[in-house]
Design a protein around this nucleic acid. Structure first.
Lengths: 234, 234
DNA sequence: TCTACGTAACCGACGGTCGGTCTCTACCGA
DNA sequence: TCGGTAGAGACCGACCGTCGGTTACGTAGA
């Protein structure tokens, strides 16, 4: 006896479940059988919705891109906000990626950001960058007009900053585990986040210190504070 | 009757063959069986030299790192060369990666730089970056002393420039195929190479225009010229 | 003889296929 | 208004070839 569901509902169920499993165990280490077991359907059902396992991956990447875009768009559209503040807001929302506590962050590091998952990450960041780069480019053009930025090629620079950021975050996450063995790594990571911000400031030609691309919550994660939601931010 | 070979010879044979196949068809799409068929030995021979297929990948990455280091080291060691010229020399050797002709470059793009090969590429660039970053850091420190560069954190900046470069090159290679369909992509690619150079110049705080990170041969590749050095620049 | 090197049959798990079943809905004649 | 029915699409699960990896066992050379 099997259950028939609405197409979109079932499909979302596949995507959500697969995403969860990919994050927990990695793309390659999550079999199609594991996905259908978790959803509670048969192999045939899976291949009714997706031509291949890789097609599912691409749909996840597309969804990630759309979600990133949904976060970024309202910030860009705000007519009152200066360009630099838009940048800060944009990065606060995208780079913090909801990492409220250390555990989640370390889980992500161990699997999502391990290079076992290079394919998954590569696809997702590429789609996200492609979709959000034009928005960032418009922010940069605004900054040029306002005189707070000095960028000769906004579109290319925007794409590079985003890909650069993804690379840096991946490296950050990869080293997170080492902290337990060697606490000095924590200082290095915080430093590298500062260097990343400085680098972007220079690429944009803004006044040093005017960007805040990395939230303080990162420091808390590195420091190992269990953090006690201290009222803050989000 | 089987042939016994010297350990190192056999091992190099595995590594060379695997590298060739990985470049031709990708890491995931090259089975262990394909490797042993190409070498002309049995499964057992393979697993006598490598614990897993992934261990072979790691050894390839290590070898790539060593090769990169061998190129970089003599440049760094030169006591007479100014820092900026060292940088130019270093990038001329590593980023041009012997791409003499368009065909090879496009083959590399289609397989090595496609994200099907994200794992292979991720491992190889990471090892290369880890090994060469300290060398670049020393160049930057020299530039600081000479007053031609202005970098607050040479070590972190060095690592970021290299990883950044790998990301940019990967994006470049990925788009190379599109040129045949849309020649305008060629202009975009050349522009993005210029923006990359500008970005690095700003990160290092050098005089604009003083770095030449990307060779003219890249332009020739993009333009589709079958080479014949036409005496320079366009 | 001992050990490094090599063989080839073999294993479980994987991604993917296939013939077929079940369920829902639209439309039918009475 | 109704039961009957046909088609479409959701879903099933046994099955396939191939994969990375293991095992039991030969053989060449010190």
């Amino acid at each position: 006896m099997h259950i028939t569901k609405d197409y979109d509902v079932r499909k979302a169920e596949f995507l959500d479940t697969a995403m969860r499993l990919f994050i927990e165990r990695g793309y390659d280490d999550t079999s199609v059988n594991a996905i259908i077991d978790a959803v509670g359907v048969s192999k045939g059902a899976f291949y009714h919705y997706f031509k291949t396992k890789e097609e599912l991956l691409d749909e996840l990447a597309a969804r990630a891109g759309d979600q990133a875009m949904a976060i970024v768009e309202p910030i860009v559209a705000d007519p009152a906000l200066p360009a630099i503040e838009k940048m800060n807001a944009m990065f606060a929302r995208t780079n913090a990626f909801k990492a409220q506590n250390r555990e989640l962050m370390i889980t992500l590091a161990r699997v999502f950001y391990s290079d076992r998952n290079a394919l998954l990450r590569s696809r997702m960041t590429r789609r996200s960058v492609e979709l959000t780069a034009p928005a960032l480019a418009r922010i940069i053009e605004q900054g040029n007009r306002e005189g707070t930025m000095d960028v000769t090629h906004p579109a290319q620079t925007a794409a590079m900053i985003l890909e650069f950021g993804a690379t840096v975050v991946a490296g950050f996450a990869r080293r997170l585990e080492e902290i337990d063995r060697d606490p000095a790594v924590g200082d290095e990571l915080i430093l590298s986040m500062r260097v990343y911000t400085e680098s972007v400031e220079r690429m944009l030609g803004v006044t040093p210190g005017s960007l805040t691309l990395v939230d303080d919550s990162i420091v808390r994660i590195v420091r190992g504070d269990t953090a006690e939601s201290n009222g803050g931010k989000g």
